[in-house]
Design a protein around this nucleic acid. Structure first.
Lengths: 216, 216
DNA sequence: GGGGCTTTGTAACAATTATCACTGAACAAG
DNA sequence: CTTGTTCAGTGATAATTGTTACAAAGCCCC
């Protein structure tokens, strides 16, 4: 599918110049990928930078033994700072990026990233804003891991997930939550049961409903 | 003290263009600060970006209750990505930067950061390399906190400190190590004693000597 | 409607880390 | 040399998190 200029204008008219929108339409590649698609994996070479149109992408750090730690989510109009640094320094990925829901995005080739930096002020600002945001995200991730206990981190993760999907009920297994918090399934089950007993969540197979958690 | 062009040429001749070196000499401010000087604290406004000439700077994340987590060290020719993002987006600092030894640095005003980006290719590259490095550092910090147990993190921290000072003996209190690993002094004392019993370190008041640890 | 798979619940126990409460050693300064 | 202060050692105990092992519930599909 070809990118439609009117569509881009609606989406990005407020942050990008007209000339840039045209180039985005011309050189960007539209992609529509299903949930669970791996956009990037550690060691992979990165030749394009994604810009999300809709949906969400989970950015995860994995260690050598297959354990994981959730870093942050990308949402609408977000882009990936890792891709940027990797592209601009032609290095391999250090992280895993995986779609967390049906996701539409524009894929921009490396060559244009640099070219537009000098050509369009709004693109330069976008790139630096992306860095800033991802730095903040990483710092927030460090806060969570370093300063909070698991139960609090779990609640925080549930909130984040509900914010991502925009609703209080979502599908997820205890296993997946365990992976994202770099702990085991059993621990998550225990903590969730505890939260259910406190009336803060409602559990069923493959599904969690937040009760008071969002409101607090 | 005025910055000497020859000195800058020796230090940065390989990475910066001549024109840039001249501007650095003209607009940069030379600073020589003692150990323990706080260059930046959370909430502080940032109007300059530091570039280290020698010494080292510790970058730390603090939470609201005063607990800390070491993020990374800056060494010679390093610069701070936080400063960059904060300057370029005129935001407040999210971290603490404190000199870890006698440190010499050049302080570059915000206005020049942006100007040089379009003017000097080598400066643009330097800025992006800085982002890349700090991203890597943050990811490494997350790896440590998320995937390793305290004893391993302690060893890793000791190694880092010895690398910073370039020797196997250095001054540090258990209290300080505890802060940097976001744990208590007692825990550190116990782990260190364990390491001493294994013949891997030699402890005395305010001082730690690494024995086999460096070699491994 | 009976396997086979995935997901969840949970008890029992182990390991790790945190906290509290002291004690004594090292040092600095009068 | 005494005194006050900082730093380190350590036992006891608690809290948190990890591991093992197994049972049961939900779901898919023939």
């Amino acid at each position: 599918m070809k990118l439609d200029l009117d569509f881009l204008h609606d989406k990005f008219g407020k942050i990008f110049e007209v000339g840039l929108l045209k180039e985005l339409a011309e050189f960007g590649t539209y992609m529509d990928v299903e949930e669970g698609f791996v956009l990037m994996r550690p060691g992979g070479y990165i030749r394009t930078v994604p810009i999300l149109l809709s949906g969400s992408v989970k950015i995860v750090r994995s260690d050598s033994e297959g354990r994981e730690a959730l870093l942050y989510y990308l949402g609408e109009k977000d882009s990936c700072a890792m891709s940027l640094t990797c592209c601009l320094n032609s290095r391999q990925s250090e992280i895993t990026a995986i779609t967390d829901s049906q996701t539409q995005l524009i894929s921009v080739p490396v060559s244009k990233i640099e070219e537009w930096m000098t050509k369009y002020l709004s693109w330069k600002e976008f790139v630096f804003m992306t860095y800033q945001k991802r730095f903040d995200d990483l710092l927030a991730a460090i806060d969570q891991i370093a300063f909070f206990k698991l139960d609090e981190r779990l609640i925080s993760l549930l909130k984040k997930k509900s914010a991502q999907c925009g609703c209080t009920v979502f599908n997820v297994t205890h296993e997946e939550l365990g992976n994202e918090l770099a702990t085991s399934r059993e621990v998550i089950s225990r903590l969730l049961k505890q939260l259910e007993r406190l009336g803060r969540v409602k559990l069923s197979r493959n599904k969690i409903e937040l009760l008071d958690i969002v409101l607090k």
